[in-house]
């Protein structure tokens, strides 16, 4: 296993670091990277004899809800869920997210699926992690066209939860609920601050110790490539297959060269 961490493995490990200390992590639909991160945390904590609950929506194996779709929300409202993930077609500098569309509502030019549970969970889950791999100025805008979930609320609004961090394909930010601003904490290897600035439509602060996103250690990588990929494959078979293919290609460059040669007539 001398293959260095892939980009997607780095993201998974970065998220699992953000989840450290959680007892119950819930993962929404169509979220293989967060699901893998939660499963990685569970596997790592198991070695320390600590029990972590992971609820992956859409999974039979890794989901113990028996009270229908409402149970996730009821759990969150009672503080029984420590962490959850949200993406966004647009995310702005105040931590607002938009899952509805661009342009003037309701006749938006581009219509996305809709807000799902974001307008609720963003208020109630203490460690909300914003995750959007595409880091471009069309996603990270100055101001969202529609607020599915606000980044912060007025003081009288009951709000134990909210965004804590934002992870993208380029870097990792923290979110300050007092100032409603993002702070860049680390830049993923191979990328630069200039690149991130150019791809971000809002201003953000820089951590005093701004550094490079650390690479996972070999033991973590082994756990991720073994048990965790196996667990993820139940709910996300295509994701697991492509992750394995990526590793396979890196493991046997000769084989992939041979394939490449054959492909050229």
């Amino acid at each position: 296993m001398s293959v260095p961490a892939t980009h997607r493995e780095r993201l998974i490990v970065a998220i699992s670091r953000l989840l450290d200390g959680c007892r119950h992590v819930a993962v929404g639909a169509s979220s293989p990277i967060p699901a893998a991160a939660a499963m990685l945390l569970r596997a790592m904590k198991e070695a320390e004899d600590e029990l972590i609950y992971v609820s992956v929506l859409g999974s039979q194996e890794h989901n113990f809800f028996t009270n229908g779709g409402v149970e996730l929300f009821d759990c969150a409202a009672q503080g029984r869920i420590d962490a959850f993930f949200l993406g966004g077609g647009q995310i702005d500098g105040q931590g607002n997210i938009n899952l509805v569309g661009t342009g003037t509502y309701p006749q938006t030019n581009v219509r996305w699926p809709g807000s799902f549970g974001s307008a609720y969970l963003a208020f109630l889950v203490p460690r909300l992690i914003l995750f959007r791999e595409e880091h471009t100025a069309r996603v990270f805008v100055e101001k969202v066209d529609f607020v599915s979930a606000p980044g912060t609320s007025a003081p009288e609004v009951y709000r134990p939860g909210g965004p804590r961090a934002l992870l993208t394909g380029l870097g990792q930010f923290s979110f300050d609920r007092e100032t409603a601003r993002f702070t860049l904490q680390t830049i993923h290897p191979g990328h630069t601050l200039e690149e991130i600035r150019a791809a971000t439509g809002f201003t953000f602060d820089l951590a005093p110790d701004l550094g490079i996103t650390p690479d996972p250690d070999p033991a973590t990588l082994a756990l991720l490539r073994g048990r965790v990929l196996e667990e993820v494959s139940e709910c996300y078979p295509e994701f697991a297959m492509s992750a394995r293919a990526e590793l396979g290609a890196a493991l046997s460059p000769a084989a992939s060269r041979a394939t490449a040669t054959r492909a050229i007539p």
Binding site: N98, S115, Y120, V147, S153, A154
Partner: peptide, 13 residues
């Protein structure tokens, strides 16, 4: 009654 939702475009509409 339900928590959350306040300050969203959903409630506004």
């Amino acid at each position: 009654p339900l928590r959350g939702i306040i300050g969203t475009g959903i409630l506004e509409n």
